[in-house]
């Protein structure tokens, strides 16, 4: 469709001023006397609840005794595109060394798709800011501590 001809002719100044000011006055009245609340989210005081599908930090799934379900099959290490996971252990038992590097992880979710024991999931923790003195590589015990807390 070719755009209509009246869109190319400028309107004169008087109509323009009245039309623009009416639009702005209408939205001001709607805000003050209507039922629209302010849309600003006052961050440190209010929080926004993301859905369950949010791609946060990867977390380990623990059973009732506090042990992880991982059996050292090494598949998540092979598929990770940036090689941020490191694993050492015998197949079938709990790993001795399993660490995650937060400076390399791109939060893609491939490790969750591939794990056959469902031992690693993408959690809901998206607040990962840190000072420069904080260490960004989590070893096994620290990772288990952060996984249980929501």
């Amino acid at each position: 469709m070719i755009l209509k001809k009246y869109l190319y002719s400028p309107r004169n100044m008087f109509t323009g001023v009245i039309s623009s000011s009416l639009t702005i006055v209408k939205s001001l009245i709607r805000r003050k006397y209507g039922f629209e609340k302010s849309i600003t989210l006052n961050y440190p005081i209010e929080q926004y609840h993301y859905s369950d599908r949010l791609m946060g930090m990867p977390e380990l799934v623990l059973n009732e005794k506090g042990k992880s379900l991982c059996t050292s099959c090494d598949l998540c290490v092979q598929i990770c595109p940036t090689k941020c996971l490191e694993l050492k252990g015998e197949v079938g038992k709990e790993p001795k060394l399993f660490s995650l590097s937060l400076s390399d992880c791109i939060f893609c979710g491939h490790c969750e798709v591939v794990c056959p024991d469902k031992a690693i999931t993408m959690g809901n923790n998206h607040m990962l800011t840190g000072h420069k003195e904080e260490v960004l590589r989590l070893d096994f015990s620290e990772w288990k501590k952060l996984s249980s807390r929501q």
Partner: peptide, 14 residues
């Protein structure tokens, strides 16, 4: 619609 009223056909924008 509000954006349209403010910008289209106004002399300064054209």
């Amino acid at each position: 619609l509000m954006l349209d009223k403010l910008l289209t056909r106004s002399k300064v924008w054209m």
